[in-house]
């Protein structure tokens, strides 16, 4: 019995010593008892396929050149391109009805995708300007020339979609409706710095002067 107990305690100590405790950080990949069920022979997005069907083993496929996928916005409409159909001229106004919901959506999307560089107020003072982007980020209010303020809505949409100068294209990252929502919100941001005193309701003016 003594030997049994000794071996028993040693066995437990060995298991604890080698296997350790829950939650310990480890580089080892997790044990999978039935890997063929956990990792079935099917395509998964952004995963390797290992089926030798495609040479590059990529689960997510790029579209074949010259093809248009079912949901892709290929039509030449102001909504899709920001341009007047059949021309290269930008549309003056947002093709979506500008509602409170659209502006709220635009604010949320602006804060996610635009504010890291352009800043939450659109003044071009986002966090990245402290890390080497100073001077290349546009101030959307552009106090001196009012260049962006004077751009048609379609041109801002085009800039978001395809990028401009050092800014990358955001068409792959932001849905079309959301890009127009951002355009609407950028207009609201710009207006906030262009208002004059007469436009402020009379009962709010006193608070402003303080």
């Amino acid at each position: 019995m003594r030997y049994f107990l000794l071996i028993f305690v040693l066995a437990i100590a060995t298991v604890l010593g080698t296997a350790g405790y829950r939650g310990t950080l480890t580089r080892k990949s997790p044990l999978e008892l039935f890997p063929d069920m956990k990792r079935q022979a099917k395509l998964r997005p952004q995963s390797e396929t290992h089926n030798l069907f495609w040479e590059d083993n990529r689960g997510s496929r790029l579209p074949i050149s010259g093809t248009v996928s079912r949901n892709s916005p290929y039509e030449d409409t102001p909504l899709n391109t920001g341009r007047i159909t059949g021309t290269t001229n930008f549309v003056e106004l947002n093709p979506l009805p500008v509602t409170r919901e659209l502006l709220e959506r635009g604010r949320e999307r602006f804060q996610i995708s635009c504010s890291p560089c352009h800043g939450a107020q659109g003044d071009g003072k986002g966090i990245t300007t402290q890390y080497g982007m100073a001077g290349v980020v546009a101030d959307l209010h552009d106090a001196k020339t009012k260049k962006i303020v004077q751009q048609p809505d379609g041109e801002i949409f085009n800039t978001i979609s395809n990028g401009k100068n050092t800014m990358g294209a955001y068409a792959p990252n932001i849905a079309i409706e959301d890009r127009w929502a951002i355009v609407a919100y950028v207009r609201a941001l710009q207006l906030s710095r262009l208002a004059n005193v007469d436009e402020i309701p009379a009962d709010k003016r006193a608070a402003l002067k303080k």
């Binding site: 080497g132 050092t166 800014m167 990358g168």
Partner: peptide, 20 residues
Amino acid sequence: WFSNIPAASTCMNCHAQVLA
């Protein structure tokens, strides 16, 4: 249904300038 890993272009939106 899945949360995508960003494309390299998303990284390069900033890293074309930052730590270029």
